[in-house]
Nucleic acid binder design. Sequence first.
DNA 1: CGACAAGCCTGGTAGC
DNA 2: TGCTACCAGGCTTGTC
Length: 266
Amino acid sequence: MPELPDVEVFRRRIARNALHRRIQAVHAPDDLLLEDISASALKRRLGGHTLESTDRHGKYLFVELGDHAGWLLLHFGMTGDVEILDEDDEEPTYLKLRLDFEDRGRLAYSDRRRLGKIGVVDDVQAYIEEHRLGPDPLEDDVKPDELRERLRGRRTSIKAVLMDQSVLAGLGNIYTDEILFQVGLHPGAPADGLREETVREIHRAIRRVVDTAIKAGADPEKMPEGFLLPHRGKGGECPRCGRELRKETMGGRSAYFCPHDQSRKS
DNA sequence: CGACAAGCCTGGTAGC
DNA sequence: TGCTACCAGGCTTGTC
């Protein structure tokens, strides 16, 4: 799941439930997800500290350690998840990192596949720059003109460009489908040739979709009825016209869209 | 059994 | 020539 809205839900979960609790023990079963740090070094860097604040940029989550010890970095790949557990809650399968707090609560990061990342960084801004992440549509105040500028010269599909993390950080396959559905724009429309008004509509839709998704806890079942998301999948029908959705490969991923309501080419 | 799935990264090529 | 843009393929592992 983890695109911007999902990661924001994770961030809020940590901000609400895990701050100012001291880490007594760190459990990392292996170092398969660890970025430039060994399991034992990770334990040394986290142990004894509190979690002080949270930050998010696109799909990347950062949790500040007390005593200026840096930031814990979490990325969720395709199947990552984070939970705050009570003493008697069951541990998730595919556990990759567990922080045990002094008060016996725990933070558990799990990942069914191995595409997520865990690390410690000293400078969040530097990390964002190194990974060539564009602005975050929620945190940074991206204006329509800036979006238009960022689409310029990109002759590939608008869908592929919106998924490009160096253009905007945070949108993935699911939410770009939703955004383009709401704009009524064909996902294969070239990004470069879009009319100014269309870019404005995309700009508005990004904000609206992301905000709505976060309010729904990033749960497709809880999205408004007019959203594409709950219908996105094999045999799904357009919530607007009832026709069957089409699936096409675009930018290396499966785009779902309604050929009737998303026929606009610019 | 193969195809496919929300992620990112890399390497080769095409094109300006 | 040198840069960017673009795409295919790989990584991973569970499900259909």
